[in-house]
Every structure is written in structure tokens, then in C-alpha cells.
């Protein structure tokens, strides 16, 4: 792969990575959200593969493969299971309406650009230049988790944050060490599992209500 081509590819994956995050804010149907998240997992895998090719390291390839399996395979599969348990899960009343949250998304991307300046300044390479994309996805995940009412939307918000952090890790450093990556991935998979189980318990305890109605505990 020539340098220029791999740079193009990397930029392409980063662009689509951000685009899928915006798409998650845009759509309300849970099945569409899961599809977008799968696509985002694939883009992340793409970024990891491009960087692994550039570094020519077997370890990086292994990480990329693992990320692909986890983010585009296991996690969406678990989310589909959540969706089966909680039918008719559709984001009906987000705290911030969709148009406003899309505008906010653009604003958050600006913030991410400002926040990522030190990371970009560190190494003036193409991949480092793309780190604001990762931080933007983290912020979008934050926004989603904070403004959406459905349990599954919040899970997706958490996953967006995680994808964003993983993207920053790849773009800024070429990936964290294998041992750390393994631990992080295991933690993520377990966290989604826990959230899946809790979602069904919430559903049993509260019925198909919004999380906004979780008001048993307060001062």
C-alpha cells in the first residue's frame, strides 16, 4: 500500500466513523441505531487495519482483528438480544429534539477540535490529525447518553464513547499495548453483557417506561 493511498483510506474511514456517530443521533429506530453502530465498528476496524499495515506489526493486526470481532460482531449481537427483550423500543421523547441535537453535534465537533489540539500538535502525521474525530465521537456519545430516555439508547451512548476512545488510541498512538487492549475489550464486552441483563430487569421491574421515570431513589 502506498503512503498516499493508505492516508486516503485512513481519512475515508475516519470520515465515515464520524458520519455514523452523527447518524446515531439522527435516527430513532433502535434497529437502525444498531446497524449504524455495526458500521462504526467496521470503520474502527478499518482504521486499525490501515495503521497495522503502516506499522507492519503482527500485534497490531491481532488487535485489529479482535476489535473487529468485538465491535462489529459481539456487541451488535448483544444489542440485538436487548432489542428482542424490550420490543417497541423507539426513542419517542428525547430531552433535546433531533434537529437541535444535530446542531449540537456540529458544535461538539468544534469543541473536540479545540480539545484535541495537544494531541495533534504532538505528531504532525495524518493519523494524529484525525484524532479530533475520535474525541468528537466521545462527546457525541456523552450527549446521547445524557439526552436520551431509553435504556438501549444509553447503552449505545456508552458504546459510542468507547468507540471514540478506541479511535483516539489508534490514531494518536497506533494502538495501546496488546495486554491493555485485551483487558479493555474484555471489560467492554462484560459491561455490555451487564447492561443487557440490567435492561431486561428494568423492563421487568418498570415495564416499558422511559428512564426518566426511574425516580424511586432521590433526596
Amino acid at each position: 500500500m502506498s503512503d498516499q493511498f493508505s492516508e486516503q483510506l485512513l481519512n475515508l474511514f475516519c470520515g465515515l466513523f464520524l458520519l455514523t456517530a452523527v447518524g446515531v443521533l439522527w435516527r430513532r429506530e433502535v434497529s437502525a441505531l444498531i446497524t449504524l453502530l455495526t458500521a462504526q465498528g467496521l470503520m474502527l476496524t478499518g482504521i486499525a487495519v490501515v495503521l497495522a499495515t503502516r506499522h507492519r506489526s503482527a500485534e497490531a493486526f491481532a488487535i485489529a482483528l479482535g476489535i473487529g470481532l468485538l465491535k462489529a460482531g459481539v456487541v451488535p449481537w448483544m444489542l440485538r438480544r436487548v432489542r428482542r427483550q424490550v420490543p417497541a423500543a423507539r426513542e419517542t421523547r428525547p430531552l433535546v429534539n433531533v434537529s437541535a441535537s444535530l446542531i449540537a453535534a456540529a458544535g461538539l465537533t468544534l469543541v473536540a477540535y479545540a480539545a484535541a489540539k495537544p494531541l495533534v500538535a504532538l505528531a504532525p502525521s495524518a493519523s494524529a490529525h484525525a484524532t479530533p474525530v475520535g474525541i468528537a465521537v466521545v462527546l457525541l456519545g456523552f450527549f446521547l447518553a445524557a439526552t436520551r430516555q431509553r435504556a438501549i439508547s444509553q447503552i449505545i451512548g456508552v458504546l459510542l464513547i468507547d468507540n471514540g476512545v478506541a479511535a483516539v488510541a489508534f490514531l494518536a498512538t497506533g494502538g495501546v499495548p496488546l495486554i491493555v487492549e485485551l483487558g479493555v475489550s474484555a471489560d467492554l464486552a462484560l459491561a455490555v453483557l451487564v447492561l443487557q441483563i440490567l435492561t431486561s430487569r428494568l423492563h421487568q421491574a418498570f415495564g416499558p417506561t422511559d428512564l426518566d421515570e426511574l425516580r424511586e431513589l432521590r433526596d
Partner: peptide, 30 residues
């Protein structure tokens, strides 16, 4: 109901928080 609600808040808030800490770890690593 109360304990499921508490567990949900706990996992979501702490996962998000700790993910932010991982971003910090990545920065240190970079």
C-alpha cells in the same frame, strides 16, 4: 425496583466516567 435502578445508574455513570479516564490514559500513553 430501587436496586435495579441504582445498579443501572451505577453501571452507566461509572462506565462513562471510567471511559473518560481511559481517554486520559491514552493521552499519557501518546
Amino acid at each position: 425496583r430501587e436496586s435495579v435502578e441504582a445498579a443501572w445508574k451505577y453501571v452507566v455513570l461509572c462506565s462513562v466516567g471510567v471511559a473518560i479516564a481511559f481517554l486520559g490514559t491514552v493521552c499519557i500513553y501518546a
